[in-house]
Amino acid sequence: MLELRLVQGSLLKKVLEAIKDLVNDANFDCSATGFSLQAMDSSHVALVALLLRSEGFEHYRCDRNLSMGMNLGNMAKMLKCAGNDDIITLKADDGSDTVTFMFESPTQDKISDFEMKLMDIDSEHLGIPEAEYHAIVRMPSSEFGRICKDLSSIGDTVVISVTKEGVKFSTRGDIGTANIVCRQNNTVDKPEEATIIEMTEPVSLTFALRYMNSFTKATPLSSIVTLSLSSDLPVVVEYKIAEMGYIRFYLAPKIEE
């Protein structure tokens, strides 16, 4: 028996909007720790890892570890039917091939339930080792989204370079080139507007902008994004989910010519 009650149902709506275009089908894993997902895109270039900790739910009942295969497009369709202020409860019985989403309006005058078919998904689970990153950039998520969108109108790839001077995003395409430098800036009034760079050594990596733009669909989940870079590892693009956990996107770099 599984029963998860999330008062801030909009978080789950935003999570699905953030990942549904990257991954078609995925297993949601439910354990005492929380509600989690790990999935790769169909090309095995990017990986998404989601964790919503059990403490973040108003009510969290998970009698035994459960893996539920869902089509994310269909799940997003159902969650779109929940209001932004609705409380969302997920329910599943042991051995059932369906999951039920219950939506309650804040005033309890409208209660809906949507039952969705589960599916068998043969997915690989990858071990993600703890890593020391050469550079960690923390910046406003809206700024990162703007940069990825702007650069993708010029080129297909972005070179992210971190030095003591700041973080540089560069692209080139048929019409020309673009470079955007964000300097460390931690003197702003609001912490969510700061750009903070921690660097042990300079790093420069090339990534496909198509994936970066897809990751920025998680922007509504957090005002801050963290980019963790090492010269021989996938970049980690992390959006923290307040009080609950995170959504992390891993993207394999392109090989430098």
């Binding site: 270039v45 990986l47 090339t206 496909a208």
Partner: peptide, 14 residues
Amino acid sequence: VNPQRQITSFFSKT
């Protein structure tokens, strides 16, 4: 065009 690496070349199956 820079060739694209795959995630599976960095992280192994558990």
